[in-house]
């Protein structure tokens, strides 16, 4: 008998009688203004939130902060080179990456992005700074609504991203930019 079969046989033998799953529909009924809550929470976890009317404001932001730097984006409006063909490690040295989120979650200030938004999986991590465009109408209250939207999306990789990379491993002092992006700016449109 293989380990697999032995393990499964023992688990089967030792597991208690089956009990039902609880009802999740009673959860996630919190009521608050999702946009305000999202912005507050995102800022609290170290992100910057900028409300914009159109993409020109993002372009201005990039021009002012990253002129002459390596800026990459998955959005056609901002893309300067075809970086999708580069190897993942060649993306080291990206100064600013701009992507668009599918939706945001107000209760924890996170945004959901998956393979189709990322260009490359490593991109939002390896970049020094990250920008995310989020449509205000796509902010939902809690994680329960989040998974309703995700449903059975056929991604290979998906990610809730909440604020910049951080650590508090040294005496509980919060430091931004542990391994991933040092900063996150969310453009609310």
């Amino acid at each position: 008998m293989t380990s697999r079969d032995q393990i499964l046989a023992k688990v089967k033998q030792n597991q208690p009688n089956s009990v039902h799953l609880p009802d999740l529909s009673i959860l996630g009924k919190e009521s608050f203004d999702p946009i305000t809550k999202f912005a507050e929470t995102a800022v609290a976890i170290g992100a910057e939130v900028i409300e914009i009317q159109d993409f020109s404001e993002i372009q201005k932001y990039i021009n002012s902060k990253y002129s002459g730097k390596t800026v990459r984006s998955t959005l056609a409006d901002f893309n300067s080179e075809n970086w999708l063909a580069l190897s993942p490690k060649e993306l080291d040295g990206t100064d600013f990456l701009l992507v668009e989120a599918q939706f945001g979650v107000a209760e924890n200030g996170s945004i959901w992005i998956s393979d189709k938004d990322l260009g490359q999986r490593i991109a939002p991590f390896i970049t020094e700074y990250l920008g995310v465009i989020l449509d205000k109408s796509k902010i939902i209250n809690t994680m329960h609504q989040a998974y309703q939207i995700i449903g059975d999306e056929d991604y290979g990789f998906g990610l809730f991203l909440a604020g910049p990379s951080k650590t508090a491993d040294i005496e509980q002092s919060l430091v931004l930019g542990a391994h991933g992006a040092r900063g996150l700016v969310i453009f609310l449109k």
């Binding site: 929470t41 976890i45 979650v105 209760e107 924890n108 200030g109 996170s110 998956s114 991590f125 994680m143 991604y155 990789f157 998906g158 990610l159 809730f160 991203l161 909440a162 604020g163 910049p164 990379s165 951080k166 991933g180």
Partner: peptide, 9 residues
């Protein structure tokens, strides 16, 4: 924290 920075699926 309300959620970890990265919850990777």
């Amino acid at each position: 924290q309300p959620i970890t920075t990265y919850s990777s699926h």
